[in-house]
Amino acid sequence: MKHYEVEILDAKTREKLCFLDKVEPHATIAEIKNLFTKTHPQWYPARQSLRLDPKGKSLKDEDVLQKLPVGTTATLYFRDLGAQISWVTVFLTEYAGPLFIYLLFYFRVPFIYGHKYDFTSSRHTVVHLACICHSFHYIKRLLETLFVHRFSHGTMPLRNIFKNCTYYWGFAAWMAYYINHPLYTPPTYGAQQVKLALAIFVICQLGNFSIHMALRDLRPAGSKTRKIPYPTKNPFTWLFLLVSCPNYTYEVGSWIGFAIMTQCLPVALFSLVGFTQMTIWAKGKHRSYLKEFRDYPPLRMPIIPFLL
């Protein structure tokens, strides 16, 4: 059985960083990364991007050496992705923050609204209902991160945790300040508006959870398998008939419901920014589905049925 020789060059300087002799033909890129780490321990596998061309796409960890368009002496180019952190850690951090930050404003801890309001309670029912909904949303997200989601990528750049936390924590503080303010004004149409908004919120939260469970069942634990998601017997998953990412559709719907319930401008802005970002993600995933699966359902749109 022939063996391969693998040289790894710096993608920027073309400097030879490592030479691997007698590499098995069936070795994966993940195994080559581990061998590279032995000579350069500062670059652990998650930091490494190996590619066939200095400006090309990163090879997948599961790619097999003998199936790549290389000879028995293969040249790979290395790029440092920077310090990495696990997706689970990032999600837990960015979701735990809003949960606790919101509660600080809800309980009106000292130095927020003035001494005479310390630890007082709002007289408006919608304020307490909003706290329950907000807390439920982020507790749900935390539990899904721990027990439901299966991540195709193990890590992301460390800098992302600061960007994500600034976004989630900042908006949580902004909306919580106004919703729990002693001078907060309840919704214009009173109980009817709150009940309608609560119904929207609850339905969308159930829908979002149902989609996450359906997506989880598509991917076996520990794998990166991708399949076309289809509706199940659960009615909340029937939205798969019309959109590629109904989890985002339901998520946006939840925040629209919360915005109607609280009639709070920061919540509306958070919903708008979230919708914009999720639309970008949904379009990317939709394109990926179309590219990977020739039999992908043609009627589906990325996030909004028939429109977007």
Rank of each mutant, 00 (worst) to 15 (best):
300 R>N: 02
281 W>S: 05
271 S>L: 10
243 V>A: 10
91 F>L: 08
169 W>T: 02
80 D>Y: 07
22 K>W: 05
9 L>R: 06
289 Y>A: 15
107 F>N: 15
248 Y>C: 04
140 K>D: 15
205 Q>K: 02
159 R>F: 15
167 Y>R: 15
45 P>G: 08
250 Y>F: 12
179 I>R: 00
157 P>I: 15
87 W>L: 05
241 L>F: 15
80 D>C: 15
258 F>K: 00
301 M>F: 14
171 F>T: 00
308 L>V: 12
16 K>A: 11
93 T>A: 11
205 Q>R: 02
306 F>W: 14
271 S>T: 09
144 E>W: 10
113 Y>F: 10
89 T>S: 07
116 K>Q: 01
58 S>R: 07
224 K>H: 04
5 E>N: 01
228 I>L: 10
277 Q>S: 14
101 I>D: 12
16 K>R: 11
157 P>F: 15
167 Y>C: 05
69 P>F: 14
51 R>N: 02
195 K>V: 04
288 S>V: 02
78 F>Y: 08
291 K>Q: 09
44 Y>P: 04
92 L>V: 06
19 F>D: 11
231 P>H: 05
229 P>S: 09
70 V>T: 12
30 A>N: 12
247 N>R: 14
152 S>C: 08
128 H>L: 05
123 R>Y: 13
10 D>Q: 02
93 T>L: 13
211 I>F: 03
87 W>G: 07
48 Q>Y: 07
43 W>Y: 02
225 T>N: 08
123 R>S: 03
187 P>T: 04
102 Y>V: 03
153 H>I: 02
104 L>F: 06
6 V>L: 09
182 P>L: 03
119 F>G: 01
143 L>P: 05
31 E>W: 09
185 T>G: 01
211 I>S: 13
304 I>G: 00
28 T>C: 05
221 A>W: 04
249 T>P: 06
245 C>F: 03
159 R>L: 10
190 G>M: 11
180 N>E: 08
270 F>Y: 11
118 D>W: 14
2 K>H: 05
66 Q>R: 12
203 I>F: 05
13 T>Y: 02
47 R>H: 09
176 A>S: 09
142 L>D: 11
88 V>I: 11
275 F>V: 08
204 C>W: 04
79 R>Y: 00
91 F>C: 00
237 T>I: 08
154 G>Y: 12
222 G>W: 09
102 Y>F: 07
272 L>M: 05
133 C>L: 13
82 G>Q: 15
174 W>Q: 04
110 P>F: 14
46 A>I: 14
17 L>Q: 13
186 P>V: 13
132 I>Y: 15
179 I>D: 15
150 R>Q: 13
16 K>E: 08
102 Y>K: 01
168 Y>Q: 11
40 H>P: 12
225 T>V: 05
30 A>L: 09
118 D>E: 05
155 T>I: 10
106 Y>H: 04
67 K>N: 12
173 A>W: 07
37 T>C: 09
173 A>K: 12
50 L>A: 03
292 E>N: 08
38 K>M: 10
75 T>E: 14
303 I>L: 09
177 Y>P: 01
125 T>F: 13
279 T>S: 13
154 G>C: 08
177 Y>I: 11
66 Q>W: 03
136 F>Y: 13
47 R>L: 09
242 L>N: 08
170 G>L: 00
13 T>E: 00
149 H>R: 02
28 T>P: 10
132 I>R: 02
112 I>S: 04
295 D>A: 11
169 W>P: 05
31 E>S: 12
189 Y>N: 13
182 P>I: 04
